[in-house]
Amino acid sequence: MRHLITDIFAGHLFCAAGLATMTAALRHPVGSAMRMGAGIFPLILGGLLAFFGLIVFSRSAFRLCRRGSFSFAVLAKAFTRAFSLRTFFPAVLVGAGMLAFVGLLSAFGFVCAVLVLVIVSGFAHHEARWREILPLSLGMAFFGVGVFVWGLNLPLRVLPI
């Protein structure tokens, strides 16, 4: 039952990706059989993707219909359960931490970026505590500078100044 509902979403996703690929591919020349253009291969791939997405979708829709449980309400319930704020909260914090790393690295240096990354993403775990995360972030900053900058000579800016 559960996988039938997820397959409905998966099918839509593949279909959408396939159609998007086909539309984008149409901007490029298709070419001839001998000299294939830049558009033909993505066009075929997009078509295949949409086709298999349709199979995945219709197969599970058919089975759900036969059980009589194919309704918008069932889908909406599954969707809100899968993407509720409570289940999604850790992902948001990890994402925020990585985005901070991206934003801070070139302007403020490696140490700042790692401190923020570890602190923000560290709180994604439900048992996170300040007295563990703070030492961990400092430790990772020192370790990172030692290993990546001095040890491996990666061209990273260390400090803001």
């Binding site: 775990h125 563990e132 961990l136 990666l154 061209p155």
Partner: peptide
């Protein structure tokens, strides 16, 4: 795990960055 995954994340970020030095 709560101490492990931040470390893994740091390694991931630095690893990806270092391939072509691009954020």
């Amino acid at each position: 795990y709560r101490l492990l995954y931040p470390v893994v994340l740091v390694f991931c970020c630095v690893g990806v960055y270092s391939v072509s030095n691009s954020v």
